[in-house]
Design a protein around this nucleic acid. Structure first.
Length: 325
DNA sequence: AGCCAGGACGGAT
DNA sequence: ATCCGTCCTGGC
């Protein structure tokens, strides 16, 4: 890997969000496994996060709650880079942040929609204003989804670290060392054998397939955004290595469809207990009940309950896991 | 020693 | 359409 790039501060700006807005738990999701792509500083409630504008144009962001600066809801962002930036570059950065954190989404309709379900009022009260976050590109979120397949979170973390330390770019700004995500080209120029050496196991083949697909379909993201969610899901699953689980993650996080959630083995148990008082109900039964309660906001409701569990009941957060990681 | 973990594929029914 | 064996790896 190339040496560490030092980024210089370019500018700063504020981005307003439609209230209510919860800065901390929008930019920082305790349930997501940690990577060195970002770092949330608890003491100052500041989020550091990298972004790639092009192969060699790197952005480092330092984000804080706009409320601390102005009497407005939103994000205050300081922009660092290794290059000088055009106004168009800065517009892309603003647009990326706004989309990644759903600043223009009106989530009050979510609260209204689930108002008669008492089981979720606690999490909503605790996390009011939280939105889905997806700072990743589609390529990146599909990589992460692949590394979550059929394994424990601890190993997913290890795979990500191995991949980033070999293929990612290391940057340094405002006293932080972070990685920038690798590109499809970084992977296609390598080999499946190399990926296996990085301990991603049988996923090596899938990660190479995904990289090849994005390398050959430059504007897949734009196409997906013109499709219905059903069409987009089918389109995503045309990529070898992307099945229903990864597709739903992409739909929920990247395309921001609010009703997508995977009742995988540990969430199945958590929601089984939540709905029926035991951990043994089937995926179908759990999903049916979730859909009945939350309809087209099922994914958002699940997010609130899971994040609330990580924030306020850390001792319960690994129900259903065997490794206790 | 065998099974499972924040799945997906390919082939057989 | 649904079912099943298989796949890397590591922890229990």
């Amino acid at each position: 890997m190339k040496g560490t790039k030092k980024l210089q501060k370019i500018c700063e700006f504020g981005l307003e969000a439609i209230p209510p807005f919860n800065f901390k738990y929008t930019v920082y999701k305790p349930s997501h496994f940690p990577t060195k792509l970002e770092n949330f500083d608890e003491a100052s409630e500041t989020m550091y996060r990298t972004l790639r504008l092009s192969q060699n144009k790197i952005i480092g962001l330092k984000m804080a709650d706009l409320k601390k600066v102005k009497e407005r809801e939103g994000i205050m962002a300081e922009v660092f880079s290794n290059r000088s930036l055009t106004e168009q570059d800065l517009q892309r950065v603003r647009s990326h942040i706004s989309q990644a954190y759903g600043l223009n989404e009106d989530i009050s309709s979510f609260y209204q929609s689930v108002a008669n379900d008492t089981s979720i009022q606690g999490p909503i009260q605790n996390l009011r204003g939280m939105r889905v976050s997806c700072f990743e590109t589609l390529f990146e979120i599909l990589n992460i989804s692949s590394m979550l397949q059929n394994t424990t979170v601890k190993r997913s973390e290890q795979m990500m670290e191995n991949m980033l330390s070999f293929f990612g770019r290391k940057v340094n700004y405002d006293g932080r060392q972070l990685y920038v995500f690798y590109t499809p080209q970084d992977i296609t120029q390598s080999s499946e054998q190399k990926l296996r050496e990085l301990k991603v196991g049988y996923r090596a083949k899938f990660l190479m397939e995904i990289a090849n697909h994005f390398s050959a379909n430059a504007n897949l993201e734009e196409k997906l955004k013109t499709m219905s969610f059903e069409e987009a899901k089918d389109k995503l699953m045309e990529i070898k290595g992307v099945g229903p689980y990864s597709a739903r993650i992409a739909l929920f996080q990247y395309l921001r469809r609010p009703n997508e959630i995977n009742f995988d083995s540990w969430k199945r148990k958590i929601f089984s207990r939540c709905f029926f008082g035991n951990e043994n109900e089937t995926v179908d039964k759990v999903e049916k009940e979730a859909s009945k309660r939350w309809r087209n906001w099922m994914g958002y409701a699940g997010l609130y309950i899971i994040e609330d569990m990580f924030v306020n009941n850390p001792e319960l957060q690994y129900w259903g896991k065997k490794d206790g990681s």
